[in-house]
């Protein structure tokens, strides 16, 4: 383990060690030890009921035998659940994108005054930090079960993504165009319309389509805590041990997600 190479008669070393990523050996081994200790500790303290877990395979076998073949008998329920998800996704995208625009302008460092900028950033951070399912249970408590809570949830979810990306785009705009508009004496809003909007429009359209796609995915999830759509149908099927219907729903969800991903990808490719 010598770090100084042994020299041969010709004066050339005949040992070689790859230079370590962390030069300081104390830090290197300390870090390794810390990681090992952490993993051991984390596994140790996890409250795992091994007796219950060991029954898992028997249960898994029962669930899967109950799930096959998937049952499409109640396809009416399935379709109406899906249409509701689609409606939630559309309305949330429209609402989310509309609200994102002013928030993005607030959160763009180059356009907004500092206090406004901080408020804009804070809104985005809050919208991004909470998983849509958490937002959903709060809205479900506030406005009751059903698709309206889903729409509100996904509006928040959309703001977290669209406003963030849009704000970053606004911060990257070519400032020369803004100066050109100002130099011909244009006011604040004409400057926005002629010098800023054209630069951010393509991104905005792409983001909206992307967000519609991801809202459709998320709407399948927020339904599980009662915010409407196909997720509610799925949670009900699971709760009643209708595993064959649950599997049918899952298959359809996967198919629709793949389809919507392909479609939105195609559209975005055309626009960009």
């Amino acid at each position: 383990m010598s770090t100084t190479p042994a020299h041969t008669a010709k004066g050339l070393p005949d040992t070689w060690r790859r230079p370590p990523m962390i030069a300081n050996p104390l830090l290197r081994y300390g870090l390794l030890l810390a990681v090992a200790v952490y993993i051991g500790w984390a596994l140790w303290i996890l409250p795992i009921d091994w007796a219950r877990v060991s029954q898992g395979f028997a249960r898994a076998a029962r669930i899967f035998s109950g799930a096959f073949p998937p049952s499409f008998e109640r396809s009416g329920l399935l379709i109406s659940g899906f249409l509701e998800s689609l409606k939630i996704a559309i309305l949330a995208t429209v609402g989310g994108v509309l609200l994102s625009i002013p928030i993005a302008f607030m959160a763009a460092k180059n356009l907004a005054p500092r206090p406004v900028y901080l408020v804009g950033r804070a809104l985005i951070i809050i919208a991004r930090s909470f998983h849509p399912v958490i937002v959903a249970i709060i809205f479900v408590k506030a406005v009751g079960f059903g698709p309206f809570a889903g729409v509100l949830t996904l509006i928040v979810y959309s703001i977290g993504f669209v406003a963030k990306m849009l704000a970053e785009r606004i911060e990257e705009i070519d400032w020369g165009q803004v100066e050109a508009m100002r130099s011909v004496g244009a006011g604040y809003f004409p400057t926005l319309v002629y010098a800023v909007f054209p630069q951010i429009m393509p991104r905005q359209i792409g983001l909206s389509i992307y967000q519609l796609d991801s809202n459709l995915r998320a709407s399948a999830v927020v339904g599980i805590v009662g915010a409407g759509g196909i997720g509610s149908t799925l949670a009900n099927a699971f709760g009643r041990y209708d595993y064959d219907f649950a599997l049918a729903i899952t298959i359809v969800i996967v198919a629709v997600i793949l389809l919507s991903e392909a479609v939105s990808g195609q559209i975005r490719k055309r626009i960009w």
Binding site: V53, R59, I63, A220, I224, I253, V254, L258
Partner: peptide, 25 residues
């Protein structure tokens, strides 16, 4: 890859709660 990606974590959790029982596993 496709089956793992297309099913959301929460849906996976529903399934595994049914299998392993409620809890961290």
């Amino acid at each position: 890859l496709v089956s793992s990606r297309s099913v959301n974590t929460i849906i996976w959790a529903l399934l595994f709660v049914a299998i392993f029982g409620p809890g961290i596993v």
